[in-house]
Computed example of a mutant assay.
Amino acid sequence: MVRSDPRVQWAVSLGVVAVGIATIRPMGFSGHGLAVVVLVAVNSLFLLGRNIPDDKVPARVAVVWMSLGIVAAACLIGTARSGTGYLFAYFLVGHIGYRLPPARAVPLAALAGLLCGGVLYLRLGPGHEALPWGLGLSIALPVVVGIVSRSRQRALEAVLASAESAERAARAEARTAALAERSRIARDVHDVLAHSLAGINMQLELVDALLDTGDLARVREANDRAHSLVKESLKQAQWTVHALREDALPLLESLTAMIESSGHRDALTVAGTVREPPARTAQHLLRIAQEALTNAARHAPGGDVRVRVTFAAASTTLGIRNGPATRAPAGGGSGMGLIGMRERIAMVGGTLATGPITEGPDRGGWQVEAVIPG
């Protein structure tokens, strides 16, 4: 529980005890003076007890302790002839308002006022009614200060608890963002390394196979293609660095360069009012195009490729179609490319459709269509 500085609490309590010892009379080692000394000592113990942390004292024990403290304070007021014995009652009643809920604090404060006022009346006798009434009322009033202090304390605790909860939520959100960023980097690394290395590996395998046939023209062609893929890999690495830095890439310009580097020219068509989509949208569309073009080269080598970008008012659509292979495919893929496409589309709330082409001039080929809102 949040509390005021314990050192201040102890200083105030010890100050009240010191003032009481210095002013309360009579004090001695016998008779009336001894009774006053004992009552001052007992009241001091009850008053110092308010510095014990709340969680160290059970609620029922606290009620009993403060009830007995009220009785001891009333006895001191009735026994002492002069001095500041009433201060013990004031501070104890104020602490009752702070320590206990109002339903318990108010009755105890009323009891303290009645006891202290009644004891003073019995000591002074008839004809001095105003002073006991005034003392009893003034002793009961500090409970209001204690209740207000308790309310402010609980409000402060609620604010601190809310701040701690918000901090925990922020840490959890940061962890989630870090994990999401790791996934994004993993996808980008896959896009660059897996695609590029797979293409280069296919060309090198082709070179190795052609060397046995002695067809030097095709060997040079495959070798040139491998060099082209290496250059393309460097471009892809640059794109990945841009993406990781959240740099904006021009969609159509980057897409045109990507298509031409894959060996297809004049394959891009654009529909709708051309605009530059948000950086995140452009990034995802380029990665999906890269995956689709790589798959076309792997599974349908020699086939025609057509790419279409459609700008609508509320979305951007990328469609890629490739015809059937004219050469033997190099082999199957890992399947991670399609998974990466779906992950990217899911991140931006878009839709992805993939599947074989069953009619038209590209029958037997493959198509990919990605729609991203915005």
Rank of each mutant, 00 (worst) to 15 (best):
Arg171Gly: 05
Ile147Ala: 06
Val144Trp: 06
Ile147Asp: 02
Ser165Gln: 15
Arg184Met: 14
Ala158Ser: 06
Val143His: 02
Glu173Ser: 15
Val159Trp: 02
Ala155Tyr: 02
Ile147Ser: 04
Ala169Lys: 11
Ala172His: 01
Val143Ile: 06
Ile147Pro: 00
Arg175Asn: 08
Ala180Asp: 12
Val148Lys: 04
Ala166Ile: 02
Arg175Leu: 08
Arg168Leu: 14
Val148His: 05
Arg175Lys: 07
Ala161Asp: 14
Ala172Gln: 11
Glu173Thr: 15
Val145Thr: 15
Ala178Asp: 12
Ala186Ile: 05
Ser165Lys: 11
Ser149Cys: 05
Ala178Lys: 07
Ala155Pro: 00
Leu160Lys: 01
Ala155Asn: 00
Ala166Asn: 11
Glu167Val: 02
Ile185Phe: 06
Ala161Pro: 02
Ala174Trp: 01
Arg154Gly: 01
Gly146Tyr: 09
Leu156Trp: 03
Ala186Gln: 08
Thr176Arg: 14
Leu160Tyr: 03
Val143Phe: 04
Ala170Phe: 13
Leu179Trp: 04
Arg152Met: 12
Leu179Ala: 14
Ser162His: 12
Glu181Pro: 00
Leu156Ile: 10
Ser165Ile: 08
Gly146Ala: 13
Leu160Cys: 07
Ala166His: 12
Ala155Trp: 05
Ala166Pro: 02
Glu157Trp: 09
Arg150Lys: 12
Thr176Leu: 14
Thr176Glu: 09
Val144Ile: 10
Ser151Pro: 00
Val148Tyr: 03
Ala172Trp: 00
Ala155Gln: 04
Ser149Phe: 04
Ser162Pro: 00
Arg154Ile: 11
Ala155Phe: 00
Ala158Glu: 06
Glu167Ala: 14
Arg168Thr: 10
Ala169Met: 04
Ala155Arg: 05
Glu181Lys: 12
Glu164Trp: 05
Val144His: 03
Val144Lys: 03
Ser151Met: 07
Arg175Trp: 04
Arg175Cys: 03
Arg171Ser: 09
Ser151Ala: 15
Ala172Thr: 04
Arg154Ala: 10
Ala178Asn: 14
Ser183Lys: 13
Ala186Trp: 07
Arg175Pro: 00
Ala177Thr: 12
Arg150Ala: 15
Ile185Asn: 07
Arg182Val: 14
Ala166Tyr: 12
Arg171Cys: 08
Val144Pro: 01
Gly146Asn: 05
Thr176Ser: 11
Leu160Asn: 04
Ala170Ser: 12
Glu173Val: 08
Ser151Lys: 10
Glu167Asp: 12
Arg154Pro: 00
Leu156Asp: 01
Arg152Val: 11
Leu179Pro: 01
Ala180Cys: 08
Ser165Gly: 11
Ser149Val: 00
Gln153Arg: 05
Ala163Asp: 07
Ala163Ile: 03
Arg184Cys: 05
Ser183Asn: 15
Ala158Ile: 01
